[in-house]
Simulated scan of single mutants.
Amino acid sequence: MSARDINEEIIEDLYSAALMLADDARAAFDLRCEDTSADPDDLTRVALSIEGLRATTRLMHVLAWLLNQRAYMAGELSEQQLERCGTLPEEREADADNLARLEPSTRALIEDSERLHARVARLDRHRRSQVVAATPVASLQGRIAQAFATG
């Protein structure tokens, strides 16, 4: 099995996991189903709104990154297009005070989304490091660094 096949399998597995988490997040953070008679200043409701937005945004970033990878592997995006549009945005971690106000199942969902983002971020960093290392300028810089290395 080639490295490309392994990458495709990893991307597909992560994509499936991200879709399932996104569906769970949609259900967990759908405030239309909540009791609307609660005080609008209720800090728990505010915390749920804030962390719901963070979690769904995090998951949408992951899904977008994975879709770009799938498109590249299918030949629908060039390397240049992937470089321009295929970088995963930085993580915005959940607020500890907000998390403390939420139910354990909701906290677990948020933590799952953070772990998924971290896994995809590692893949993104690895992919970007390979691209940088493959450029002629990076190769020349590496040779210069080796030539002047002290040791």
Results as ranks from 00 to 15, higher is better:
34 E>S: 10
34 E>G: 05
34 E>W: 07
35 D>S: 03
35 D>W: 01
36 T>C: 09
36 T>S: 12
37 S>A: 06
39 D>N: 08
40 P>I: 03
40 P>N: 04
41 D>W: 08
42 D>W: 00
43 L>Q: 09
43 L>W: 04
43 L>V: 11
44 T>L: 07
44 T>Q: 11
45 R>Q: 07
45 R>P: 00
45 R>W: 01
45 R>L: 10
46 V>Y: 02
46 V>I: 12
46 V>K: 09
47 A>N: 04
47 A>D: 04
47 A>F: 03
48 L>E: 00
48 L>R: 01
48 L>M: 04
50 I>S: 10
51 E>F: 07
52 G>E: 02
52 G>M: 00
52 G>R: 01
52 G>D: 03
53 L>W: 07
53 L>G: 11
54 R>V: 07
55 A>D: 05
56 T>Q: 10
56 T>F: 06
56 T>E: 07
56 T>W: 03
58 R>I: 07
58 R>P: 02
59 L>R: 07
59 L>M: 08
59 L>D: 06
60 M>E: 12
60 M>Q: 11
60 M>L: 15
61 H>T: 07
61 H>W: 07
62 V>Y: 06
62 V>A: 09
62 V>M: 04
63 L>T: 08
63 L>W: 03
64 A>W: 07
64 A>E: 08
64 A>H: 12
65 W>N: 04
65 W>C: 05
65 W>Y: 11
66 L>R: 01
66 L>N: 02
66 L>D: 01
66 L>F: 00
66 L>A: 01
66 L>I: 02
66 L>Y: 00
67 L>E: 13
68 N>Q: 10
68 N>S: 09
68 N>A: 11
68 N>D: 14
68 N>R: 06
69 Q>I: 02
69 Q>W: 02
70 R>P: 01
71 A>K: 11
71 A>D: 13
71 A>V: 04
72 Y>H: 09
72 Y>C: 01
74 A>K: 13
75 G>N: 08
76 E>W: 13
76 E>C: 10
76 E>S: 12
76 E>P: 04
76 E>F: 12
77 L>R: 09
77 L>F: 11
77 L>W: 06
78 S>L: 12
78 S>T: 15
79 E>K: 13
80 Q>M: 14
80 Q>S: 15
81 Q>Y: 10
81 Q>E: 15
82 L>H: 03
82 L>S: 03
82 L>Y: 04
83 E>I: 11
83 E>V: 11
83 E>R: 10
83 E>G: 12
84 R>S: 15
84 R>Y: 12
84 R>T: 14
84 R>E: 15
85 C>V: 12
85 C>N: 15
85 C>K: 14
85 C>M: 14
86 G>S: 08
86 G>H: 02
89 P>W: 03
89 P>G: 05
89 P>Q: 08
89 P>L: 02
89 P>H: 08
90 E>A: 13
90 E>C: 09
91 E>H: 14
92 R>V: 15
92 R>H: 14
92 R>A: 13
92 R>T: 14
93 E>R: 14
93 E>S: 15
93 E>Y: 14
